[in-house]
Design a protein around this nucleic acid. Structure first.
Length: 496
RNA sequence: GGGCCAGUAGCUCAAUGGUAGAGCAAGGGCCUUUUAAGCCCGAGGUUGAGGGUUCAAGUCCCUCCUGGCCCCCCA
């Protein structure tokens, strides 16, 4: 049936057919429509910015032909490369037969190399008077409309290459993302952190409460999991004496997809020996402020119309106080499952997991507490029941030295003083196993090797995790996480 | 998995249940300083797919597909 479709001359097929005919026509004229390397002397922007020194000088530029305004014996083209746009001027009296080839057989979207002299038109636009051009790649498919761009969200995500060509803001977003990640590395490197890479394929998944993706290694006949966090391997490295480590890496969580969740996303996690969560708070503020200054030039931005100021210090809110203030529930009462179930019922919480103390606390936190917090702020001293890897507060045994940075009602960072007491950690894992037995699939699994590492001795350590995608959403004012992920997961489609 | 919404030409969008249109792109002309170039001409459609109601369906009903938003999920 797909054969019928390709045989029938639809509009698209006809457009592609014409472009292919142009490709063949170029070949017949001795022009290779997939040219060789083109020695470029300037980026488009460099020509524009450097006009004063370049006027009358020859330059060689290359880019995609985005527009062609034909006037009979001459034509103005818009050439665009990564740096920006540059106008090129083609004249028959200079190019001769090559001019007619351009007019007849070069299509919008083709990638051209152009050499010629820099000049300024009567209307004042800096341009290149083409002495020669080369076709470097043929564009066989029509590009979306030039000034309204590509709006269809599905096509934008599925054909990101087209989205990047026709929607300039998209390129800006991903350049910002790149700059953000670079600025994070610079910030941490300067503070003596060592960047490492830990396995993506895990024999046990841990470090977060989430369901994993399962895969299989053939030679070992082994069930493996894509990592859901970086945490446990990085702390093993601190045990090994790498006192300041970080990793920026992809993690995978087998959950739902939404404007704030993609099944794979990028986490920064860092661990600092001999530090605690107060150090992590200071580090979080400084790091995030540094990234905003680097990328946006300011720490004061608007996110989806909401004013946010990331300049340190950020307010500290006590978890228990905030919890009670916004939910009317004393978190200390949520210490057994029966009472938790009662609260879940009273607050009409729909839970995907069994109503245990932990799951109810998390549900109340997510739905009743966080939406009220604009931030950025720190929510400090989390309950132990939802913090199986965090150090206990000695005189408040139901709480841990853990905080999350909250911004626009969502978690931006998660950090704690790491639990380094191997025996306490074992008890926590056992408690998690009981949660799992109650049906909570996201409860942490027992990890004997991690316990062995703790038995070797983890120094007191502060750990921090930041969701890079969410940070970039705030940096670029992106409403959906898909807008900051180049290729978000979509259900595959036969015909696009 | 549930609720709501959307899908019309390559792209962006129109069209009381009554002959499917426009702009851009593409095609044929004119045009050597335009920049959303302009002017003239012609073309382009299984209205996401499949059923149904009706004299008549892009429009109403049902099923399905894909996507979006909100739930669920995701500390």
């Amino acid at each position: 049936m797909s054969e019928e479709r390709t045989e029938r001359a639809t509009g698209l097929d006809e457009l592609v057919r014409r472009r292919r005919a142009n490709l063949e026509a170029l070949r017949r004229s001795g022009v290779d429509p997939y040219g060789q390397r083109y020695q470029v002397s300037h980026a488009c922007r460099q020509v524009v910015d450097g006009f004063d020194g370049l006027a009358g000088q020859p330059v060689r530029v290359a880019g995609r032909l985005m527009a062609l305004r034909r006037h009979g014996g001459s034509a103005f083209g818009d050439l665009r490369d990564q740096s920006g746009r540059l106008q090129v001027y083609f004249r028959r009296d200079r190019l001769g037969a090559a001019y007619d080839l351009l007019i007849d057989h070069v299509d919008l979207g083709d990638i051209l190399g152009v050499s010629g002299d820099v000049f300024r038109t009567k209307k004042g636009e800096i341009s290149v008077d083409a002495a020669e051009y080369a076709v470097l790649a043929k564009c066989l498919r029509p590009l979306p409309e030039k000034w309204r761009g590509l709006k269809d969200i599905e096509t934008r995500y599925r054909q990101r290459y087209v989205d990047l060509i026709v929607n300039p803001g998209v390129r800006e977003t991903f350049l910002s993302r790149s700059l953000a990640v670079r600025s994070i590395r610079a910030f941490l490197d300067e503070r003596g952190f060592v960047e490492v890479e830990t396995p993506v394929l895990h024999t046990l998944y841990g470090g977060a409460a989430a369901r994993p993706f399962v895969t299989h290694h053939n030679a070992l006949d082994l069930e493996l999991y894509l990592r859901i966090a970086l945490e446990l391997h990085l702390k093993r490295l601190v045990v090994g004496g790498l006192e300041r480590v970080y990793e920026i890496g992809r993690v995978f969580r087998n959950g739902g997809i939404s404007t704030r969740h993609n099944p794979e996303f990028t986490m920064l996690e860092l661990y600092q020996a001999y530090a605690d969560y107060t150090d992590m708070m200071a580090l979080t503020e400084e790091l995030v402020a540094h990234v905003f200054r680097t990328v946006r030039g300011t720490t004061s931005v608007a996110y989806q119309g909401q004013a946010l100021d990331f300049s340190p210090p950020w307010p500290r809110l006590d978890f228990s106080e905030a919890f009670e203030k916004y939910s009317g529930v004393d978190v200390a009462d949520l210490d057994d499952d029966a009472r938790a179930a009662e609260v879940a019922c009273r607050l009409e919480l729909q839970l995907g997991r069994p109503p245990t103390a932990a799951t109810v606390i998390e549900a109340v936190l997510d739905r009743r507490v966080l939406p009220n917090l604009v931030g950025p702020c720190f929510l400090v001293d989390y309950p132990l029941s939802i913090s199986p890897l965090a150090r206990r507060i000695p005189d408040r045994p139901h709480l841990t030295y853990r905080f999350e940075a909250i911004c626009a009602g969502r978690e931006l960072a998660n950090a704690f003083s790491e639990l380094n007491d191997a025996d306490d950690q074992r008890q926590r894992f056992l408690a998690q196993a009981m949660e799992r037995a109650k049906g909570d699939e996201e409860a942490h699994v027992m990890d004997e090797d991690y316990l062995r590492a703790l038995e070797v001795g983890l120094p007191p350590t502060g750990g921090l995790g930041i969701g890079i995608d969410r940070l970039v959403m705030f940096l670029t004012d992106a409403p959906s996480i898909r807008d900051v992920i180049l290729f978000p997961l979509l259900r595959p489609r036969e015909e696009v």
